[in-house]
Simulated scan of single mutants.
Amino acid sequence: MSRTRILASSAIFHGFNDGATVAVPMIFPILLSQGFILKNYSQMGIMSHLGLLTTFIFQIIIVQMSPLARYQHFLAASFLGISSTLFLFSQAKSWLSFLVIYLLFRLFDSFYHTLGLSLVSKTHQTGGMDLAMGIQSGSGNIGILIAFLTAGSLAQQFSWKTPLYFWSAFCFFTGLASYLLVRSLELPQEKPEALTLSSWKETFKGVLAYLPGLIFAGGGWGLVVYYAPSLFHHRFSVSMGQTGVILAVWIGLGTLITYLFGGLCRLFNRQRLALVGLAGSSFSLTLMGLAPEVWLAQLSLYLFGLFLFLIFPALQASLGSQVPSENQSQAFSLASNLQIISGAIFSLLFGFISDLFSIQAPFLMMAFLALLALIGQKASFRKGYRKT
């Protein structure tokens, strides 16, 4: 019963957490079109870059702080902070004030992918790891789907502030539900002696085996969240409401894949699925970058959704099975931070590339990086086989 409640709470936490991170960038194209707050793609890239770096720094701090308080306290701080900063966005009057609020928002957004993932992994060590990872990953995608469906259409029909009000309330009530599910439970807590510098180094050695896939996954995610809305809205003149629907279908297909992940693992294996995801991502991003018509760009995006969301649970489940229970928070913090660093670097770079060339150029660049990641990850898996 407690495992069910923990997984349900974590799924809700992941849903509102990731949904909120997508709802904010969904209003960027409108702000850019209006010339209000955002003036160019470079400003968008700088904001995305600094926000991701903030999450990177605070994920490490949060893991180190985890022995000092119960998991429930961190969950409460996260959903209250996310809800509050979403409301504060609507009060911003300049790019600088918007940026400061965005960095604060990313601070409160730094809890789930270390502590939440770790809790799911710890409570499923004796069985059901693949199913649990697929469910929690898929639930995050459902939150993103809701964000895509609501943020663009609300901003287009009313104002850019409306989706921020909606998501502020949504995160408060879903966060409260997540908290109440686990409030009375005695949950595993980090031991201070497990979080030494030597344990960080040892855990990092295990994470290195998944470095190519993690780097691509972080960059690929950032590419779609920050630049796909502008690709459809500015390149193909698709309304923001319709753009939201297109991206909702993308994340919906990804959600389907994550919920089927446990069954797919029984038919194939995690490593094979990760490699298929990387190969398919390279192909679909190439099509997307070269697409002359909106229908082909849509089709390519949908294919990318199927392949990208094979990679996330495959790497997460492999990592959770490999790392000792006492080092789970460190392992997922490091894995998440590698993706964040990748996303931060690429989101900054893609902003300048889009200004210099076109909004399609980052998609072609990411297709090439997917191919390099495929080669590197396959070599890493083979090295692991030789050791065992």
Score class of each variant (00 low, 15 high):
residue 324 P to Q: 11
residue 227 Y to T: 06
residue 293 E to L: 11
residue 315 L to T: 02
residue 337 N to G: 05
residue 317 A to H: 06
residue 264 L to W: 09
residue 317 A to D: 05
residue 294 V to Y: 01
residue 283 F to P: 00
residue 317 A to V: 08
residue 236 F to D: 07
residue 319 L to N: 04
residue 229 P to Y: 13
residue 339 Q to C: 14
residue 274 A to C: 14
residue 258 T to K: 11
residue 215 I to E: 01
residue 324 P to A: 15
residue 256 L to K: 02
residue 274 A to T: 11
residue 339 Q to T: 07
residue 252 G to S: 09
residue 323 V to T: 09
residue 317 A to T: 14
residue 280 G to R: 00
residue 211 L to T: 09
residue 341 I to A: 15
residue 285 L to A: 06
residue 256 L to S: 10
residue 334 L to R: 02
residue 316 Q to H: 13
residue 302 Y to R: 04
residue 306 L to E: 01
residue 305 G to W: 00
residue 315 L to N: 02
residue 276 V to D: 00
residue 303 L to Q: 00
residue 244 G to F: 05
residue 319 L to C: 08
residue 276 V to F: 12
residue 271 Q to D: 13
residue 247 L to E: 07
residue 320 G to A: 15
residue 208 L to I: 10
residue 320 G to C: 09
residue 289 G to C: 10
residue 271 Q to I: 10
residue 336 S to A: 14
residue 329 S to A: 15
residue 287 L to F: 13
residue 239 S to W: 04
residue 243 T to A: 08
residue 214 L to Q: 04
residue 250 W to I: 11
residue 295 W to D: 05
residue 268 F to P: 06
residue 266 R to V: 13
residue 318 S to I: 01
residue 302 Y to Q: 06
residue 312 F to W: 04
residue 267 L to C: 14
residue 210 Y to G: 13
residue 316 Q to G: 04
residue 294 V to G: 06
residue 287 L to Q: 03
residue 250 W to P: 04
residue 269 N to C: 14
residue 231 L to I: 05
residue 298 Q to T: 02
residue 221 W to Q: 11
residue 333 S to Y: 03
residue 323 V to Q: 02
residue 331 A to F: 02
residue 207 V to S: 07
residue 298 Q to C: 10
residue 210 Y to V: 10
residue 323 V to C: 07
residue 318 S to K: 08
residue 257 I to F: 10
residue 321 S to A: 15
residue 265 C to R: 13
residue 339 Q to N: 08
residue 324 P to R: 10
residue 261 F to P: 02
residue 322 Q to I: 08
residue 221 W to S: 14
residue 284 S to T: 11
residue 204 F to K: 05
residue 298 Q to W: 01
residue 220 G to K: 03
residue 320 G to N: 03
residue 309 F to I: 05
residue 242 Q to H: 13
residue 273 L to W: 08
residue 268 F to W: 15
residue 249 V to G: 08
residue 206 G to P: 01
residue 264 L to R: 07
residue 272 R to V: 14
residue 263 G to Q: 11
residue 251 I to C: 09
residue 273 L to V: 06
residue 218 G to M: 07
residue 338 L to D: 00
residue 265 C to I: 14
residue 311 I to Q: 00
